[in-house]
Amino acid sequence: MQYQPRKRRRKVAEINVVPYIDVMLVLLIIFMATATAITQGVSVDLPQAEAEPMSTDSKPPLVASVTLEGEYFLDNGSVDEGMPLQLDELAALVAAELQVHPDRPVVVNGDRQVAYDQIIQLMVSLQSAGVPSVGLMTEPGDE
């Protein structure tokens, strides 16, 4: 028998990152799932400081209004604007209108001194009526 010297294997100095990638992907999925469960609120399109006016060729928006006295109104062209509504009545009217015209924009108009809670209650009511996006009406600022 002939004696063959053993070849020494070189030590590999590389780090195997596959397990770390697996752990990171699992953590990413967990964070994505919990982030949507934790956040609560109403999705709104907040106006910018220099907001662009609505285009004139789009459909006229449904305007849900809150007065300083806390009364709710809906301007959709067919309801008497002088008649205050309850939140559930307003939501039912908006839902009915969106079934006929699903792409009609909805905006909230409120007195500048209305309590924040009343605006939020209106927006939650609109969200429960199926409004995908709510705009906020503003007056042009002094420049």
Rank of each mutant, 00 (worst) to 15 (best):
A35V: 00
S128M: 00
Q2Y: 10
Q40V: 09
A49I: 11
I120M: 14
L46C: 09
V124D: 02
L126G: 04
A115R: 09
Q40A: 14
Q113T: 05
V134Y: 01
V100R: 05
M32R: 07
Q121S: 11
I120Y: 11
K59D: 08
G141T: 14
I29C: 12
P61D: 04
I21K: 11
N76C: 00
K7N: 13
Q4E: 13
I21F: 12
M24Q: 12
S55M: 11
T36R: 09
S133R: 06
A95Q: 12
V66H: 10
A35W: 06
A51P: 14
P53E: 02
F73E: 06
P61H: 05
V100P: 02
L25E: 11
K59H: 10
L136T: 08
E71P: 09
V42M: 05
S55A: 12
T67K: 04
V100S: 05
A35S: 07
V114E: 01
Q48G: 09
Y72C: 08
R104W: 00
A115S: 10
P132L: 02
A115N: 11
D22H: 04
L62W: 07
E50S: 07
N109I: 08
V63S: 02
G82R: 13
S128C: 04
E52Q: 08
L93P: 03
L126Q: 06
P60E: 08
A95W: 04
S128Q: 00
V66S: 09
M137T: 03
E97Y: 00
I38Q: 15
A64C: 10
G41T: 11
Y20E: 07
M83A: 13
K59P: 01
E71Y: 14
A95F: 02
I29G: 14
Q86W: 14
S125Y: 02
L90P: 02
T36E: 13
I119Q: 04
P132W: 01
V124S: 07
L93C: 03
V107G: 03
G110S: 15
R112Q: 07
P47F: 03
L126F: 00
K11W: 13
P84L: 04
P102V: 04
D103G: 11
G77S: 07
P53D: 05
D88E: 12
L27W: 08
E52S: 14
E81D: 15
P61A: 14
E89R: 07
N16H: 14
E52R: 10
L122T: 15
E81L: 13
I15P: 01
R8K: 11
I15M: 06
P60A: 06
V131S: 04
L122E: 10
E89Q: 12
G70V: 10
G110W: 10
D111I: 01
D75V: 08
V44N: 08
V106C: 00
S43I: 08
Q40S: 15
S58Q: 15
D75C: 07
P19K: 15
N16P: 05
L68P: 00
R6D: 13
M1T: 08
